[in-house]
Amino acid sequence: MKKIRNWILIFAGCFAAQAVSAQVRPPLSVDINYSITQPLGSLKDYSDKTSFRGWSAGLQYMLNDQWSVGVRSGFQDFYQRLPRAVYPDKQGDVSAVQSRTLQVIPIQATVSYAFTKPSAAVIPYATVGVGAANMNYEKYWGEFVEKDNSWQFLVSPEIGINVPFGKASPVMFNANVRYNYSPYKVGDITNFNTIQGNIGLKFSLN
């Protein structure tokens, strides 16, 4: 009971803080970004091609001028085809053209901190996203697929900037760099490590 009361107080405080601060734009926003992702570590050994097939999207609520919370999702596709090679396997020696793919769909809760006031011309910020990711692993041996689909813990710290199109514009240009880590293990992948660049737009909604 006490806990609930404390939460209510915290939220009330947040709303109050937001209400008293001069409101530059509405607190609720949606962002849509195009993503380019570079795999690192053992993921790079599995599929070393930079992925140009991805997006990220989220909803954010500003608690006050600095802090906001939100949820986000997205998609990233990793793909690499290797020329024919012989792979020693417990099942024998297998000669195959391997097509190595991985699709990642994250779902994360986010907490962000803005380093300047919302009225600034450029608003640098930092975000941490914590949640889960659906990992869809498909390693093709020729036309035969070896599959694994699972949900994994995913944490993603990020730094970026928002640039409003005009001082109080509800539309902002967004660019950020995000690091993704998941203790994902399958086949030769011992963990999931990527660095992701995102550019897109952020719209304040009412």
């Binding site: 596709d77 053209v97 793919t101 035969f144």
Partner: peptide, 28 residues
């Protein structure tokens, strides 16, 4: 954005030749 990007997964079977589709397994 979501519809267009989620369908842009690269399909490994789409551009696969017959030669690439074959695997040769040997045991001894």
């Amino acid at each position: 954005a979501m519809v267009s990007f989620s369908s842009c997964r690269k399909d490994p079977l789409k551009d696969m030749t017959n030669e690439e589709s074959r695997i040769y397994i040997t045991n001894h």
